[in-house]
């Protein structure tokens, strides 16, 4: 699994020092990483592919990587407002907003608040909604799984997870530990969802693609179908040969689907 080796730059967004990687040019594609963190999750092939069709911006969420976490932030909603600030700060328009897993939840939480700077949304195996009854988990309790079991559920081919932590630098290990801490901190209870989000998804008024790894053992494809059916202009696609991380296991197929949306043009609703 290749690490993302783009050197990060830092931008200040609403008082938060934010780590940001950029590659490519053209239509902005904002990629919101999963709980593992950008540059630590083997997403480099996917980012590189997307950069062939647009200008990829891959920030670390507050509390992940080297991005600060202000002491008052404790929810995905806080991160969603942070990303609305980032879109304003960088004056991004007609953005393709792509989010994976936790990042998919954040992307949905951004889009229900405002799509003014978005032209489309791509959700990859996103957390964030609750569809079943109180005794049924929609989202596996990843904090109750052994590492082996977790890998088996994350990847269609678990040998794809070849990260050898012992070989990582201390900085990289601290970044992983920090991201794990923040993900748990902001999404512990209710576990990995916001009970209100599903009731707000109707507000997403841009074309939306819900992509799901066919073998996802963390959140099953039916959950993705429910997500898509709650968003007015959404399509659902299964990605074969992938589980919870299709952008890592099938970067070319996923990037091609994102590119199909990036080609969609919508007149910006933000005054120039």
């Amino acid at each position: 699994m290749q690490e993302l080796d783009l050197a990060p730059e830092f931008v200040e967004v609403a008082g938060v020092r934010t780590e940001l990687r950029q590659e490519g040019a053209g239509r902005p594609i904002l990629f919101l990483h999963p709980g593992m963190g950008i540059g630590l999750d083997g997403s480099s092939a996917f980012v590189r592919r997307m950069s062939e069709v647009g200008g990829v911006l891959a920030p670390s969420h507050p509390g992940f990587g080297a991005s600060e976490l202000p002491s008052w932030m404790n929810s995905v909603d806080d991160l969603a407002y942070f990303y609305l600030d980032l879109l304003d700060k960088l004056d991004l328009r007609d953005v393709v907003l792509v989010g994976a897993s936790l990042g998919g939840w954040i992307a949905a939480a951004v889009a229900v608040k405002s799509t003014a700077r978005l032209c489309s949304v791509v959700l990859l195996d996103a957390f964030g909604i609750k569809i079943s009854g109180r005794e049924t988990r929609d989202i596996a309790d990843v904090h109750a799984l052994t590492r082996t079991e977790l890998s088996r559920r994350l990847y269609a081919n678990p040998t794809a997870d070849t990260r050898d932590f012992a070989s990582f630098s201390d900085d990289r290990l601290r970044a992983i530990a920090r991201g794990r801490e923040t993900e748990a901190f902001i999404a512990w209870s209710p576990y990995m969802y916001d009970p209100k989000l599903i009731h707000r998804l109707h507000r997403i008024d841009v074309p939306t693609l819900v992509l799901w790894g066919a073998a996802d053992g963390i959140v099953a494809p039916d959950y993705g179908r429910a997500y898509a059916s709650a968003i007015p202009n959404a399509r659902f696609h299964l990605i074969d040969g992938a589980a919870h991380m299709p952008h890592i296991e099938q970067p070319i197929a996923v990037a091609a689907l994102v590119a199909s949306l990036a080609g969609f043009h919508q007149k910006s609703r933000v005054p120039a």
Partner: peptide
């Protein structure tokens, strides 16, 4: 094993050491 160290319980430094 998976219940021994919920993220955030131990410090970042300790967790980085445990990963190693």
């Amino acid at each position: 094993e998976q219940f021994r160290n919920p993220p955030g319980y131990s410090s970042i430094e300790d967790n980085a050491r445990m990963l190693k």
